[in-house]
Every structure is written in structure tokens, then in C-alpha cells.
């Protein structure tokens, strides 16, 4: 598709070549030449520096055309000259941008509200977990143990600080200290807390 009025090769006439090198290069580049026409053009490239430069220019031209967005001047062309399919695309692009902005805003609102709801719900569920999972009897028992151990430890401190003590008293003190040691050995280990705090279903 060379759009040439001549029936012979368009490259046969030097005048035709020089006038239409840009056009031939464009057609070669966009694969609008037949195979034979492409071979003919490549022969021309081997001999003619102007043809080589025209091909380079065509590549730069197409790269340049592809790199630029159609300007408002182009968009405001009359409908008769600008293809119909081109104008809606530009209108759609601005609508798409607005839609994207609105979608982003809605998404941000949704995420924020979800995070707020989740954080308040998390606070509620945490307190409920502490209050409900262990049984009340177990908790009372644990509190009793802790209060006894606290009382005994303060009692021991007061005994060891007393200046006058008999042998019997010292023996009693040692017994008490042994008891204290046993009490300390009875400090509630972590696994016991874990066992106590296990839900009833898993214990059963």
C-alpha cells in the first residue's frame, strides 16, 4: 500500500523517492508494505543515506507521537473531524478520575470506621475474657492463697527483726520458715493460671 500513482516500483524514480521517503519509512515501519516492497525499501536503505535517516526520523516520530497525550486543542476539534471513538475516551477518563477519587474516599471511610469498631470491640472482648473464662471458685481460691502468703511474709519479717528469742521460739521460727518455704514453693506457677483460665469445653 504505497499510494503511488506509478505502476512500477515507487523507488524507481529518484524524484519520487526523495519526495516520499518519510512516507515510505512510515509504511515500512508500520508493516503496511508487502514483503517485496519491504525488500525493495531495505535495498534502498543499503544505498541511500537519506532513506536511513528517514527511517530513523520515522521511529522517533512514532515514539514521540506515542509519548504525548492528545492536547485539549485536539480534544476540542469538531465532531466531524475527530473520530467519535476518540472523544468519549477522553470524557470517560475524567469521569474515571472522579470515580476513582470518590472510591478512594469511600474506601478510607470504610477502613477507618472498621478499625474504630474493631478496636472498641476488642476492648470489650478482652475484659469479657478475663471475667468469664476462669471459674469464680478458682479465682477466690487463688486470691486466698496470695493473701495468706502476703500475711506470712510480713509476719516473717517482723520475727526476724525481733532482738530477743528463746531456743524454743527459734525452733518455732524455723518451723514457720519451713512452712514459709513450702508456701513459697507453692507459688502459683504460670501453667496453673493457664489451666485455670482454660475454657470449660477444653477441660472437659
Amino acid at each position: 500500500m504505497l499510494d503511488s500513482s506509478n505502476n512500477s516500483s515507487p523507488y524507481s524514480s529518484p524524484a519520487n523517492i526523495s519526495d516520499n521517503l518519510d512516507w515510505f519509512a512510515f509504511q515500512y515501519l508500520s508493516n503496511e508494505l508487502s514483503e517485496q516492497e519491504s525488500l525493495d525499501f531495505e535495498e534502498l536503505l543499503a544505498q541511500n543515506q537519506a532513506a536511513r535517516e528517514a527511517l530513523a526520523t520515522a521511529v522517533q516520530l512514532i515514539a514521540g507521537l506515542k509519548s504525548i497525550e492528545p492536547t485539549p486543542a485536539l480534544n476540542s476539534q469538531p465532531a466531524a473531524t475527530i473520530p467519535a471513538a476518540f472523544k468519549p475516551r477522553t470524557i470517560l477518563s475524567s469521569r474515571t478520575q472522579q470515580g476513582a477519587l470518590i472510591s478512594c474516599a469511600v474506601a478510607v471511610l470504610l477502613v477507618t470506621s472498621f478499625l474504630l469498631t474493631e478496636s472498641s470491640f476488642r476492648g470489650t472482648t478482652n475484659s469479657q475474657t478475663v471475667q468469664t473464662e476462669p471459674s469464680q471458685d478458682d479465682l477466690k481460691h487463688l486470691l486466698d492463697l496470695w493473701s495468706k502468703s502476703a500475711e506470712e511474709s510480713s509476719f516473717t519479717v517482723s520475727l526476724s527483726s525481733a532482738p530477743e528469742q528463746t531456743d524454743l521460739e527459734q525452733t518455732d521460727l524455723m518451723d514457720q520458715q519451713n512452712v514459709m518455704a513450702e508456701n513459697h514453693a507453692l507459688e502459683i506457677p504460670d501453667w496453673l493460671f493457664t489451666a485455670v483460665s482454660l475454657p470449660e469445653e477444653s477441660v472437659n
Binding site: 507521537l65 492536547t71 476539534q77 473531524t81 475527530i82 473520530p83 476518540f86
Partner: peptide
């Protein structure tokens, strides 16, 4: 491209961009 006649612009746009 902006300075091309409108009839030529339309063909370029249809061929290159579309």
C-alpha cells in the same frame, strides 16, 4: 500535531492512537 489541518489530525489520531 496541533498545527496540522484538522482533516489530517483526525487521520493521524485514528491511525496512531486508535
Amino acid at each position: 500535531l496541533n498545527n496540522l489541518p484538522e482533516s489530517q489530525q483526525a487521520v493521524v489520531i485514528a491511525r496512531i492512537y486508535q
